[in-house]
């Protein structure tokens, strides 16, 4: 039985696509057949983050409209076995997404894949609602700042009332909080919300905390999911998050201010 996981946030620019790429890759690395779908029709990004933009021929909308088959549109990842990408169309808009079409595509994917990651667009409109409608689980990507937390709260409300599971009275969608761009130094200085603050407001289980890191931007620009950068703290934190998603206990890391040694500080070492 395929698990449909939506990666959503309400707010834009918090790291949904980075997270979709990292989590999808992490699941595939562990031998799970995984597909990541870009629901951001009109603002295609996932292909860039995954570094497969030159291989896009057909897209999600072509499949929805019967212009291409799924096998034609799916792009196999070159670095990770078991991983496929279904890119969004750059030329259409969200109206191309119909509930019946999305359902049909997901049903077809569910026959071959174990995990279907839906990379949601920002906002709470049609695109975001389509991405979350069929979800079994949701990863709520939140930055430690008030506007992101408020938008996440809003999208949680929509998940609880407008998802298929909510409408049919089934088991509620399983929610996970993923805090990204976390900077312990700025939290300590009171410039950023702490993990506890965000947990207090959103009141959903914490899947992981991804530290703010230059490696994320670097990985994005290179078209490599950051989880493949084993030296980067962000990559390691995503790896932990994948383990927790699969039900394995992992202590949370990178929550505290790192103690830099006297010499490192003296030499101006980077943290």
């Amino acid at each position: 039985m395929a698990k449909i996981i939506v990666v959503t946030s309400g707010k834009g620019g918090v790291g949904k696509t980075t997270t979709s790429a990292a989590i999808g890759t992490g699941l595939a690395q562990r031998g799970n057949k995984t597909v990541i779908i870009d629901f951001d029709v009109g603002l295609r990004n996932l292909d860039l983050i995954m570094g497969c933009e030159r291989r896009v021929v057909y897209d999600f909308v072509n499949v929805l409209q019967g212009e291409a088959s799924l096998t034609q549109a799916l792009i196999k990842d070159k670095r990770t076995d078991n991983l496929f990408i279904l890119p969004a169309s750059q030329t259409r808009d969200k109206d191309a997404l119909t509930q019946e079409g999305v359902q049909k595509t997901l049903d077809e994917l569910a026959q071959t894949f174990e995990y279907i990651i839906c990379d949601s667009p920002a906002g709470i409109e049609k695109g975001a609602q389509m991405a979350l409608y069929f979800a079994d689980q949701a990863i709520i990507v939140t930055n430690p700042e008030v506007s992101s937390v408020r938008d996440s709260d809003r999208i949680l409300g929509i998940l609880q009332s407008k998802s298929l599971r909510a409408e049919t009275g089934g088991e509620p969608v399983q929610e996970h909080l993923l805090l990204t761009r976390y900077n312990p130094t700025r939290v300590a200085a009171g410039e950023m919300l702490s993990v506890e603050d965000v947990e207090d407001i959103l009141a959903i289980p914490l899947l992981g905390v991804i530290p703010e890191s230059e490696s994320v931007l670097k990985a994005s620009n290179q078209g490599t999911p950051v989880i493949l950068d084993e030296d980067a703290e962000a990559g390691q934190a995503y790896d932990d998050a994948v383990e927790r998603l699969l039900g394995n206990e992992k202590p949370h890391r990178f929550l505290d201010v790192k103690k830099t040694s006297f010499f490192k500080r003296l030499l101006g070492g980077k943290t």
Binding site: I124, R150, D151, D153, R154, L156, G157, Q160, I201, A203
Partner: peptide, 22 residues
């Protein structure tokens, strides 16, 4: 949660937080 609204024609008891925007 934010964006949600609850109306009661009598008393209202909420067991949980009422978040910003609700």
């Amino acid at each position: 949660r934010s964006g949600q609204q609850v109306y009661s024609a009598a008393d209202l008891i909420i067991i949980g937080n009422v978040n910003e925007g609700a």
